[in-house]
Design a binder for these strands. Structure first.
Length: 278
DNA sequence: AGCCAGGGTCTGC
DNA sequence: GCAGACCATGGC
């Protein structure tokens, strides 16, 4: 397989990680995942424990992707802890190759603002139009996610073409607060969870769920536990007593396995499994 | 046509 | 503090 470089990624599943609802800029075309991250337009394909990368050089690219996909985190230890519970074991074993991604805080906050009362395919469409319209050119034809400064001065009418509906004004408020330095990223990463959550909830349109998504996927706060409709259903049906106490510090990791299991396995007797893009 | 989607805000009790 | 209406948009 043609590639700029190849990475060894034991235990990792590219497909499950990209298709479990934590990111919105990747599509699948005949086994190859195409998307934009950082300043690169990347084409990724996995065969066994090998990840084939096109679109970036090894030197900046490999450490970037190891970081993005959390490949240096000790998932063997996470799995050992989670699998002590019988139901969590099912969720983990259903898609053990999922990794919680480490995406930029601003981008994650912005995309999850757009996620509210919305569905994943349409979120991806809005994010795509946002980047096409206001992003900056990167490498290989990439449309880099727009900086908050690029949006901070705009009006909601300017965003009409995104078809984001009532969420447009929320994106602009977020942009202004990020651009103005009102969000202290270091504090968001290190403050006690409730405090960090409150910082993000200062943004209009950011409630507990969106804040927890930003914390988990955009600040590596594994203690954050975003509960959307699927996770709420799964908790009620599968974890009536809540999560085991020892899991609480990595409740966010557990949450991602639960979300994917609940949404795509059919355990909740729910509608047809969502299939990967493409 | 009506319901739902990785929710939040605002109002009224 | 909590329930209910409402918010834009699009797919089923």
């Amino acid at each position: 397989m043609q590639a700029d470089f190849v990475m060894d990624v034991p235990g990792f599943s590219l497909a499950d990680t990209l298709c479990c609802g934590q990111c919105f800029r990747w599509t699948c075309e005949n086994g190859e995942y195409i998307g934009t991250a950082g300043r690169w337009k990347l084409r990724l394909a996995q065969q066994g424990d090998r990840l084939f990368v096109r679109g970036a050089g090894r030197e900046p690219g490999e450490p970037f992707l190891r970081q993005l996909f959390g490949l240096d985190e000790d998932y063997a230890a996470f799995h050992r802890l989670l699998r002590r519970d019988a139901m969590l074991r099912r969720a983990v074993d259903y898609a053990p190759g999922i990794r919680v991604m480490k995406q930029p805080l601003w981008e994650t906050t912005c995309t999850f603002i757009l996620s509210q009362n919305n569905n994943i395919p349409r979120i991806a469409g809005i994010v795509g139009r946002l980047c096409a319209q206001f992003g900056t050119p990167g490498e290989g034809g990439a449309q880099v996610f727009p900086a908050p400064q690029a949006l901070a001065g705009l009006t909601p009418e300017t965003l009409t073409l995104l078809r984001a509906g009532f969420r447009a004004k929320y994106v602009l408020d977020a942009a202004r607060r990020f651009a103005g330095g009102e969000i202290d990223e270091q504090a968001v990463r290190t403050a006690p969870l409730d405090s960090a959550r409150a910082m993000l909830m200062g943004i209009q349109g950011v409630g507990p769920k969106v804040a927890d998504c930003a914390l988990l996927f955009g600040a590596a706060r594994y203690d954050a536990f975003p509960a959307d409709v699927w996770v709420k259903r799964a908790m009620a049906a599968l974890f009536p007593a809540g999560l085991p106490a020892e899991v609480v510090p990595i409740a966010g990791i557990a949450q991602q396995y639960i979300f994917h299991y609940a949404r795509t396995s059919g355990v909740l007797g729910s509608p047809p499994p969502a299939k990967p893009p493409g």
